[in-house]
Nucleic acid binder design. Structure first.
Length: 367
RNA sequence: GGACGGGUACCCAAGUGGCUAAAGGGGGCAGACUGUAAAUCUGCUGCACACAAGCUUCAGAGGUUCAAAUCCUCUCCCGUCCA
């Protein structure tokens, strides 16, 4: 893996870079569509490419449970299995520790959990999780981490942080046995700046080619989130890619870009798309709402995606109201296109030295 | 002409004396969603209202009762069957 920062914004900490992986080159800042179950829900790989996707995210925890590693190995790895040949970043299942909390017990040794699919019992160590991702053929692997909810006490956040560091260490040792793909580190520490700083220092000491910030956008207020980000991003090595996990809404992303974050992923464009909300250059559009029943304009007049070039809001609303599958596909497609296009425009703005204005005018238009 | 069975809110439909402005669906209207247990979830849906009183409802009219969507009488309408 190679990462080069090519442009630094003068007014903010935003930067442009080029991340080179075996399966492709990625321009940063980048948004990675989420394809948890080896599919970005409702979209084909071709559609993703048409939207401009350079890398997508998938999930080791989910794929381990279903279809299982044997099946993916037999298929020749995750890329062949799902017919996506550009880079894939796989999440470890750390987030599932958070979201499926009732089904698991965390110990230093690893994660004791029940499958959300059939209730079967499993035990996964950080080493197991690295091996799962190696078997998948992941391009960027994430170590198992402990993502705590908000709010959480300092002591609890500290315990989770220590475990995350311990697991990062063990994950790296396991990865070094094969040295395929790359393994990032994940900064935890909840909303405590001291813990965040400690977490990233410990990770940097272990040494990773890229660093992720986890455990944000889990219910904390936005200003607190920016505060923590502000106190974290700048301390990460400027020569490594910085990845803010699970974020976010367009405004959240632009804000984080201005602080120097390079990579993002979020379920928002696809989930909102399936639930009938489109992102546009003038804010959110709830496609289902009655006001659009006779609206003959596209979702976003400034968008040149397939959906906006060919379909009206009136038609999309009808598809949602009628429960037709095409509606959710088209809006998911548009949203992915919109997010990727936003990142493209953000990169251009950074290169042109006008990112601050770009971010501010976007926020102003989206009120 | 006769015999049954029905008419409940936008639609379907429960309710057969008080706890009913009225179950449950559907439809409609809005909101939520951030490393996906989500094509999901939540709220509202007689009028008025910021709320609370309040007002008007269960085909229509009249009656019984302290109290009626619910009981009685008549009228109108719908369905099935018989002539």
């Amino acid at each position: 893996m190679d990462f080069k920062v090519t442009h630094n914004d003068t007014q903010t900490a935003a930067r442009c870079g080029v991340l080179t992986l075996e399966r492709g080159t990625i321009e940063t800042p980048i948004f990675m569509p989420v394809g948890t179950q080896a599919t970005v829900k409702s979209l084909s790989p071709k559609e993703l490419e048409d939207c401009g996707a350079q890398i997508i995210l998938s999930n080791a925890y989910h794929l381990y449970l279903r279809p299982g590693l044997d099946i993916i190995r037999e298929a020749g790895g995750l890329h062949k299995f799902m017919n996506w040949h550009k880079p894939v970043l796989t999440d470890s299942g750390g987030y599932q520790i958070f979201s499926l909390a009732i089904l698991r017990k965390i110990k230093d040794e690893g994660l004791d959990f029940q499958s959300h699919l059939d209730g079967s019992r499993h035990f996964l160590t950080p080493e197991d999780v690295v091996r799962v991702q190696l078997a998948l053929g992941s391009d960027i692997m994430m170590p198992l981490d402990e993502c705590v909810s908000y709010p959480v006490s300092f002591d609890e956040a500290q315990v989770a942080l220590e475990r995350t560091t311990l697991w990062a260490h063990r994950s790296k040792k396991e990865w070094e046995k094969e040295k395929k793909g790359v393994l990032f580190g994940i900064v935890q520490g909840s909303t405590y700046k001291d813990l965040r700083k400690r977490s990233l220092e410990e990770l940097v000491e272990i040494g990773f080619p890229g660093y992720a910030i986890g455990g944000l956008s889990v219910g904390e207020p936005a200003d607190l989130r920016y505060n923590i980000l502000h106190g974290t991003v700048g301390y990460l090595p400027s020569t490594s890619p910085r990845y803010l996990m699970g974020v976010g809404l367009p405004q959240d992303i632009l804000e984080a870009v201005s602080l120097g974050v390079d990579m993002f992923d979020c379920v928002v464009p696809t989930r909102y798309g399936r639930n009938g909300t489109a992102f546009t250059s003038r804010g959110k559009v709830t496609v289902r709402n009655g006001e659009f029943s006779r609206d003959q304009s596209p979702l976003d007049a400034d968008c040149s995606c397939y959906c906006c070039r060919n379909f009206t809001r009136s038609y999309l609303r009808h598809l949602f109201n009628a429960g037709e599958i095409l509606g959710l596909r088209l809006v998911s497609y548009h949203n992915i296109y919109f997010f990727l296009d936003l990142m493209k425009k953000a990169r251009q703005a950074i290169k042109d030295g006008c990112f601050k204005e770009f971010k501010e005018s976007f926020a102003a238009r989206c009120v």
